[in-house]
């Protein structure tokens, strides 16, 4: 039993950190897309700029693919989402958390609903 718990916690920890990565990725990608053009607009009117942009693009797609694959695996490792692994419950004020607690209590069960994305 203790081994299993430890395993679960590791898995959901990893899932959370991958979720963080999924938030950082678009920001990092946007910066990498915009900053070079702000600094060196002239360099992009040449073959070098074209190659840079397309290489960046291809790498970004591969990164998204790898990240999504890792996220799917991490979620599979967790199995059915642990309702306690939902830190948002503590983030909101009184009604938000309460409504979620309501849901957790099983007062309502809608298969469409997952727990909200964890922070």
């Amino acid at each position: 039993m203790p081994e299993r718990r430890l395993f679960l916690e590791r898995a959901s920890f990893r899932r959370r950190r991958l979720g963080d990565a999924a938030r950082v990725l678009p920001v990092a990608a946007a910066l990498l897309l915009l900053l070079p053009v702000w600094w060196l607009p002239r360099a992009f009117a040449s073959a070098g700029g074209v190659i840079w942009i397309f290489a960046f693009w291809a790498v970004l797609i591969v990164l998204i693919w790898l990240l999504h694959r890792a996220l799917i695996r991490a979620e599979a490792a967790i199995g059915t989402a642990d309702p306690r692994a939902d830190p948002e419950a503590d983030r909101q004020g009184h009604p938000g958390a309460a409504a979620r607690a309501d849901r957790r209590a099983g007062a309502r069960s809608d298969p469409d609903q997952d727990p909200p994305d964890a922070l």
């Binding site: 990608a29 897309l33 970004l60 998204i64």
Partner: peptide, 11 residues
């Protein structure tokens, strides 16, 4: 759109 889809997992 590529940037938007990079954030598709949570957005």
């Amino acid at each position: 759109p590529t940037i938007v889809f990079a954030g598709s997992w949570w957005g």
